[in-house]
């Protein structure tokens, strides 16, 4: 439902990355598209981690990463199409 690489913080920078998964694509995308997206994102993750591993962040920075991760998810969860019944 949401892009696995959301946010400009690179995969080896932020300790948190929330992803929203569903059982059905809301835009009728085929399963293969989503599979590709996940695979490419995993590849990107390894590429960055190979350069440099995740730093030992301070409590303040970790909290900031949580706040941003939440904000990125809020923009997905607040979408009316996600909440229809």
């Amino acid at each position: 439902m949401s892009h696995p690489l959301a946010g400009s913080m690179k995969p080896n920078q932020t300790p948190f990355k929330s992803i929203v998964l569903g059982t059905e694509s809301l835009e009728g995308a085929n399963e293969f598209r989503d599979l590709e997206l996940i695979e490419e994102s995993i590849e990107a993750y390894y590429k960055f981690m190979k350069n440099r591993p995740l730093p030992r962040w301070s409590e303040k920075s970790t909290e900031d990463f949580r706040i941003i991760d939440l904000s990125l998810m809020e923009s997905v969860m607040s979408n009316p199409i996600m909440n229809r019944r």
Binding site: L26, E27, A29
Partner: peptide, 10 residues
């Protein structure tokens, strides 16, 4: 450049 995939499609 929204995070929601349905937005991207639309």
């Amino acid at each position: 450049e929204n995070v929601f995939l349905a937005d991207k499609e639309r």
